[in-house]
Nucleic acid binder design. Structure first.
Lengths: 162, 162
DNA sequence: TATTGTTATACTCTATAACTATA
DNA sequence: TATAGTTATAGAGTATAACAATA
């Protein structure tokens, strides 16, 4: 990971070249840098729709699973339920989703997309697909699939360990 | 990315199975989940040393490039200079690093690790290597190298676009 | 008792503008 | 005029404890 220091031989430790060698094999930091770059670009991509990565993802799951509960949504998105509440408040206030009490279990809400929410999502989805294509087109399809599979496998392993 | 909805056929949209299908091809969110999992596990790993991912990474670069400037460090770590200042304040207060004015350019500081900082880093590094091995051992070495290369390439492409 | 959603809160990370001192 | 470091600040993201309503 971080390489060993070169011997100093009593010379003044002037730095000639500053390299990222110390971080090059550090998987966690590599992941962080890549994620931050993608996150920033995606934020620009979604700004016209007044969405962020997380709110776009919420819409995606609600569109795909109409009637989903908040606790299920939190599970699927791997976020804490308290943090979900304010996000859904925002989407509901904008009339992009609805919260309906479930009759069978009145503690829970069934989440659904409104027509407006669905339309916004469909448009945003096109922009997100274009955004991802910009940096994934340099990989062949197998490679992309393999990397996604590896990342998901790593997530499972880490969470299993902890 | 997010799959199309199944036709609804007028039936009540009761959700039987809630799946993450809508997010499975979403590279950005996959990256986010994996990063969050690793970040949380690394935080536990580094807690005994009172370090975090970012402060550990700072130490790694300073150990590898003694005399590095703050602006160079910010570049290598891909963080903003203002955010770096408080992090270095903390490491300096703990006597893990030193800031020395450069004689040639008195605006800049030359950053170096103290002996104590070096010792803490060496210990923390062992823990981080073990942490990364826990989830990377399931990949063969070529695969790990390839994924890291792909992630770095993606970061460059995204930043080039933006 | 346990679960669903909620409130409040705190901590970290990230980004920007504006300042100082040096160059 | 530009650069290195700094201050202040605001916005997101993340995590936990404790609560009311319901099961």
């Amino acid at each position: 990971m971080a390489p060993q220091n070169k011997p100093q031989l009593g010379a003044a430790p002037q730095v000639s070249t500053v390299s990222d060698a110390a971080l090059r094999g550090f998987f966690g930091y590599t992941l962080k840098r890549t994620f931050n770059a993608i996150q920033a670009d995606l934020a620009l991509t979604l700004r016209p729709f007044e969405l962020r990565m997380i709110t776009y993802s919420l819409l995606a799951v609600i569109v795909d699973c109409p009637g989903v509960r908040q606790s299920q949504l939190a599970d699927v998105l791997a976020i804490e339920r308290p943090n979900l509440v304010v996000l859904l408040d925002e989407l509901e206030r904008r009339d992009l989703i609805t919260r309906e009490r479930e009759r069978a279990d009145r503690r829970a809400y069934a989440l659904k997309c409104t027509l407006m929410g669905r339309r916004l999502y469909d448009q945003a989805r096109k922009a997100v697909l274009a955004h991802e294509k910009r940096f994934l087109k340099q990989l062949d399809e197998d490679e992309t699939t393999q990397i996604i599979a590896a990342l998901r496998q790593i997530e499972r392993t880490v969470k299993g360990n902890t």
